[in-house]
Design a protein around this nucleic acid. Structure first.
Lengths: 349, 349
DNA sequence: TTGTAGGCGTTATCAG
DNA sequence: CTGATAACGCCTACAA
């Protein structure tokens, strides 16, 4: 039922070598012979055994995409599908296959790296959303060595990555709030194990500094990227000594949680407290009021990373080894304009 | 830098066969020898070449997961990550790898099936969210033959699938509306190329019949699973001869679109028109009012499908070859209780 | 309990 | 332009 070169060769009256040449589009085959071979291929429904080919050529035509534990949680909404879509669109173009590697625990992750990377099963790796902890694994990849592209900046020399400008994006969000007149701008952070979490925090601090506002620990609450985390963090801020008139949340989910907390206190979004999120996930425009947020070019991050990796695999040079894509502030309705008045209305609970 | 059995054998002073036996946990190796071999393995950091092994054993330990074009769009929100998470949790347990196959166009899909399935690269396939069109491909899989499990019911004999009870779920949603007193219950359908779209429509019709309500084409509008589609469909209904007092939308996205249309008409959700969605996607509880909807056990669909496939691959029998998981109606705030009054309030525009 | 030899299906080498 | 042959790294009869 399953045929091999040998069968095709026999049927076409040619040698295995010739058949192989035809399959690999080697031009040095007489037209007539080629036709005969292709006819036989069609007749038998032959398709090369990619495993055997991989063994011989030492190329599997497979790319590994690693989703570290927790990422699908952090970026639950459209991030994951979008980025994968971006990656596949490029891989399909190059006839490369995608191995999805998703560890559910730390130990699983460890095992995956140690085994899989040595198994010659993949030609390269895309690492989505690296955490600082991933450094050890990245270094392992280098040892093998195996081409690797990260999605998200990583503080390491001579590394390839595509990311969005978390720092600038956060900066823009906060500056937007400041330009609206806010002077007590709070921050709901994500966890700091993800690089992006730290960068967004940085952007927040830089914006304050640029506008001569003093950084104040009382205005910062730590979330964990989740809606619940955002809710809790906002409660902290609301019960604190200084209640902010505006809050920048490090992602949309936390922003939505914060919105809930604010509403529960009987305060109004935008009128009493302004909110900005990050990522422009799908539900950002659904919630009430629609969320002002920082849009991230997710799909593009996927395509660029894949294109980089393809080049690396082919031994080509990757022009700028590190790419940071711009974000865009999407202004909706969660930030008010009558801030002067607002500042007086908000009182410590 | 990369070692083979040969290297290990030499270092351990054993034969390739013995090393192979140790790697495959064959018990017929003297303890002492095994220790020596393992020591050598560790020393060299040896890990078997899975490609060579696959060629020899004709098993790749890879499972293909096929996302047909458009699915990631239909089930944009948590569906995709959740189902993949479910699948990987099981595959990781069995040391199986996951090949993600995502076609961006119909022709790509065709090519993928014809080539990949013959390439011996995968031991089995999980097909997510089959459409009626997929029948041709499913039959091809059988020809190869390649074990295959669908996620979503499929009308074909002797096929393995896991799905949620779309029909019953839709029935429950509509019955809920009827029990609240609604007699003009509208339906916003999805496209009918997906099996689930048809089943949900069926459930709607059965519920009407069971409660002696006549099916009325005027109360049905066709959407396309998207928010915009839901919006358009709802506009149609609102401008129709008979405006429904309640609407069941075939998924949450369209329900959200419908909500928008209703609000724009100056009508109130729940008070004027009740809305129920389907799937309980993440944003269902974020929108205003929080959406009453039918919850689908996504993660479980993934795990069950993977478990089924693993059994099929191992030649074991799959006990019930077809599993339909129950759904659960999640009652939130998008359906009112004062329906009698409402029915009078709603007037044709 | 261990080792030898052969072959999985392909491609690369080299000779014609 | 074409073909015979070897080798990729592993597993598995079979023999010892």
């Amino acid at each position: 039922m399953l045929f091999t070169v040998k069968d095709v060769a026999r049927l076409a009256g040619a040698s295995k070598t010739t058949v192989s040449r035809v399959m690999n589009k080697n031009p040095k085959v007489k037209f007539e012979t080629k036709t005969r071979v292709l006819q036989a291929v069609k007749e038998l429904g032959y398709s090369p055994n990619s495993i055997a080919r991989a063994l011989r050529t030492k190329k599997s035509d497979v790319v590994g995409v690693i989703i570290p534990r927790g990422v699908e949680y952090v970026f639950s909404d459209p991030f994951f599908p979008e980025i994968i879509k971006g990656i596949t669109s490029v891989l399909n173009l190059h006839n490369l296959n995608l191995h999805l590697i998703m560890s559910n625990s730390e130990s699983e992750q460890r095992e995956i790296y140690s085994g899989l990377l040595r198994s010659r099963r993949i030609d390269g790796v895309i690492l989505i959303c690296s955490r600082f902890d991933d450094k050890q694994y990245i270094l392992k990849l280098r040892k093998v060595p195996l081409p690797c592209v990260l999605i998200s900046r990583f503080p390491l020399e001579k590394i390839n990555y595509v990311g969005c400008d978390n720092k600038q994006g956060a900066y823009n969000a906060v500056e937007h709030l400041i330009n609206l007149g806010h002077r007590r701008v709070g921050f709901i952070s994500g966890s700091f194990d993800f690089i992006g979490g730290v960068d967004r925090f940085e952007g927040y601090k830089i914006a304050l500094k640029k506008h001569n506002l003093e950084y104040d620990n009382e205005l910062v609450a730590k979330g964990d990227w989740t809606r619940e985390g955002g809710y809790q963090a906002m409660c902290e801020l609301l019960n604190g000594v200084k209640v902010p008139t505006a809050v920048f949340a490090a992602n949309d989910q936390m922003a939505v949680g914060a919105v809930k907390a604010i509403k529960e206190k009987g305060l109004q979004i935008s009128k009493d407290i302004a909110i900005v999120g990050f990522s422009d996930t799908q539900f950002a425009s659904y919630v009430e009021p629609p969320l002002t947020t920082v849009r991230e070019p997710t799909y593009e991050e996927g395509t660029l990373a894949a294109e980089m990796l393809v080049k690396l695999i082919n031994g080509q040079e990757v022009k700028p080894p590190q790419v940071i894509l711009p974000t865009k502030l999407i202004i909706r309705e969660s930030c008010g304009y009558n801030v002067k008045k607002m500042a007086k209305v908000v009182i410590k609970q």
